[in-house]
């Protein structure tokens, strides 16, 4: 592997309490300009604006770190506090260019706001965005009001419906956000390979015959991947023309039914398994009488893991997702 040696990094920051957004924007411009005149010569580089809605810091930190390494973005991270004011921290991260080349900078702006400001967060955030770049809103927590407030600024809204405790509620929240723009669900991207594998298994005609005549579907998944099971079942139902999909939660597994286009019933089991990988699908079986397509662990071990992976792999639009949600009644 020809790994590049890490380039030396520099950072500078500014903090303020009870600030106006115009003040934050001015400090951001000042810090950026300072770095441009730095002895190494830095230039700001962005490929997107990223707005992060309030969530536990530890939950978003890994995602932001992956972005720092991979995707130069202007990041505006929202937090909530009780005090009726906005506190701000601006950090400019710069990679120092080697061999006389320019280094590159990108910024993170942390805004700590009261509820009232969060409820109109669109106006708070807007002056801090780089014009003309795509804007992604990452709904990192369950603050739907803040998400609704910034969603109109976004070309894409990134959610992870597998992150919440209530799977169907998470899918309904994702579905509700679709009216603002294109929703990218990280849980859906974790299914990319399974969808490809199911399609691959149906490519020789015998596999296709099984799928079209399927009378049962079983999705085996990790203990924390119930949403993935639901989405895969919803997608299969949408593509195979099943209707009346019902998947009520059970004490151990979701067991439900659907009705094939010819009226025949389909039994569906979403079966959780303890042990790793807790957040992944483990296997899928699509059966028609004696015949079945049975898929186990995928070929490659690396589905999207980080926020940067998900952003890099986003398709436009994510085909099949809306149909899967509709089939699930979300």
């Amino acid at each position: 592997m020809s790994a590049r040696a890490p380039e030396p990094a520099e950072r500078s920051d500014w903090r303020g309490e009870g600030v106006a957004v115009s003040e934050v924007a001015a400090e951001l411009r000042r810090l950026t300009a300072e770095h441009m005149h730095h002895e190494h010569g830095h230039a700001s580089t962005w490929t997107l604006n990223l707005i992060v809605t309030p969530a536990r810091r530890d939950r978003v930190q890994a995602g932001l770190d992956s972005l720092h390494e991979r995707i130069p973005a202007r990041m505006v991270v929202l937090h909530e506090h009780e005090a009726e004011r906005i506190d701000a921290a601006v950090t400019v991260h710069c990679q120092t260019g080697d061999q006389g080349r320019r280094g590159y900078c990108h910024e993170e702006i942390d805004l700590v706001c009261d509820r009232a400001h969060l409820d109109r967060a669109g106006g708070v955030v807007h002056p801090l965005l780089v014009a003309d770049l795509p804007t992604v809103v990452w709904v990192a927590g369950s603050d739907t009001r803040a998400a609704e407030a910034v969603a109109p600024l976004a070309e894409r809204i990134l959610v992870d419906s597998a992150a919440g405790a209530d799977a169907m509620a998470a899918l309904r929240r994702a579905a509700a956000l679709r009216r603002h723009g294109h929703v990218d669900d990280a849980a859906w991207h974790r299914l990319d390979r399974w969808r490809k594998r199911l399609a691959g298994a149906c490519d020789p005609a015998p596999g296709r015959e099984v799928a079209l005549a399927a009378d049962r579907l079983e999705v085996r998944h990790g203990a924390e991947a119930g949403v993935l099971g639901l989405l895969l079942a919803g997608w299969a139902a949408a593509r195979l023309g099943w209707r009346d999909l019902r998947l009520p939660p059970g004490p151990e597994a979701r067991r439900g039914t659907a009705v094939r286009a010819d009226g025949a019933p389909v039994a569906i089991d979403l079966v959780p398994f303890d042990g790793p990988p807790a957040t992944r699908v483990i296997g899928v079986t699509l059966g028609a009488g004696e015949r079945e397509i049975r898929l186990e662990r995928p070929l490659g071990p690396r589905p999207p893991e980080t926020l940067a992976d998900t952003l890099a792999g986003m398709a436009d639009p994510a085909p099949g997702y809306d149909d899967a949600l509709r089939a699930l009644g979300a």
Partner: peptide, 19 residues
């Protein structure tokens, strides 16, 4: 003719056959 692959429409790229 065979019915179309019901899942292929959502794939971003052409499906690779057994190779």
């Amino acid at each position: 003719s065979d019915p179309p692959n019901p899942f292929e429409q959502d794939l971003p790229r052409r499906l690779i056959p057994p190779t």
